[in-house]
């Protein structure tokens, strides 16, 4: 009896201590991003300064965009990820399926502070990134200028890198076949358009080296395993900093927005909001863009930026020529079908 009493005493003391601690010290937020050069830049621009501002500490983690783990967490009611970086089709789908919290913008900032189309019900844009053509300027004498050149194996012999998957691959095939950027999704929405894209891919099937992680194409380009490749533009900048002579062709690049989202049922919603608000401030987004050339989403961040850095971003007016945005709705609708079709084509 005595022991039991003392145990309850200890328990209540611990509980009381925890309560008072929670009032003063700040819990840490688990923030999951895509890793690599992108995570390094986030650490410098967001995680470190967030902790320094006494906002709370950040436990970083990384994933490859698979929604399975988030779905499993939300369904089991045991959410351990507080803030996640998501690509736009997954964000839209996850929002509809109830994987993510509907955001309360009064806790983040007015939607009008952000560039149009970078904020939605469940996600706040972090940055604008681009999938573009890149080549090794040391290995190629003449520079390619379009996806048509990418398909020209006579003029540019050698292997080419493409991301293993239907998304972007089919768009690039249609661009190479002469479809105008504005018509790509209209054509890809028809049966004939899909046939056309796969027929175009057939032409260079034997010359393609497929990649899956964003860190692969710069390595493949640097080692000379491929002469050109589709790349995430930020990864090329990281390789350039290491002295590799890699160049980007912005013509025919496709840009998309990555967003912060809060998995539904996160126990640290308030901290998550505080982190998102902090990371959305123009000064922090400017630091991020200086680390890795992804375009900021906060309208004010663009104005005060070093012009040299601004010129390297996918959102720079010069780079937007011939570029277009990915059609999120299209990929949510046709994604499953086209990825299945792509798998069947690639496995043959």
């Amino acid at each position: 009896m005595k022991m039991k009493l003392s145990r309850t005493l200890i328990q209540s003391a611990v509980a009381a201590a925890a309560l008072t601690l929670a009032g003063t010290a700040l819990a840490d937020v688990t923030v999951i991003s895509f890793g690599g050069a992108n995570q390094k830049a986030q650490d410098k621009a967001f995680y470190g300064p967030f902790a320094a501002s006494k906002g709370g500490s950040v436990t970083p983690g990384e994933y490859n965009g698979e929604q399975a783990k988030i779905k499993a967490m939300v369904e089991a009611g045991n959410v351990t990820w507080d803030v996640v970086e998501v690509e736009s089709p997954e964000l839209l789908r996850g929002c509809e399926e109830g994987l993510y919290e509907k955001l309360d913008y009064s806790k983040i900032g007015a939607k009008s502070e952000f560039l149009p189309k970078t904020v939605s019900d469940c996600g706040v844009g972090i940055f604008v990134w681009s999938t573009a053509l890149a080549y090794n300027a040391d290995k190629l004498k003449t520079a390619p200028t379009s996806w048509a050149d990418f398909w020209d194996v006579k003029k540019f012999p050698g292997k080419r890198g493409l991301r293993k998957g239907a998304k972007y691959t089919l768009e690039f095939a249609l661009l190479a076949d002469g479809v105008k950027p504005a018509d790509v999704y209209k054509v890809l929405g028809t049966k004939e358009g899909v046939e056309r894209a796969f027929k175009k891919l057939d032409q260079i099937k034997g010359d393609i080296q497929w990649w899956e992680a964003g860190a692969q194409p710069p390595q493949l380009l640097a080692s000379g395993d491929v002469v050109m490749s589709s790349v995430y533009n930020g990864r090329i900048a990281a390789a350039q900093k290491e002295g590799k002579n890699l160049k980007i062709v912005w013509n025919g690049s496709i840009y998309d927005v990555d967003s912060w989202a809060i998995p539904k049922g996160s126990p640290k919603r308030d901290e998550a909001y505080r982190f998102i608000k902090f990371a959305s401030q123009p000064e922090n987004q400017r630091v991020f863009s200086a680390e890795i050339p992804y375009g900021p989403t906060n309208a004010k961040a663009v104005s005060g930026m070093d012009p040299k850095i601004a010129a390297e971003l996918p959102t720079a007016p010069e780079n937007l020529k011939g570029a277009f945005a990915t059609d999120t709705e299209f990929w949510v609708e046709h994604g499953e079908d086209l990825e299945q079709r792509f798998n069947a084509w690639a496995a043959r």
């Binding site: 698979e66 399975a68 293993k164 690639a346």
Partner: peptide, 17 residues
């Protein structure tokens, strides 16, 4: 892609779609 076995597609459907 020509070397992928059944488990690759199981992982694809579990994680990706």
């Amino acid at each position: 892609p020509q070397e992928q076995m059944v488990s690759y597609f199981i992982a694809f459907y579990t994680n990706q779609t």
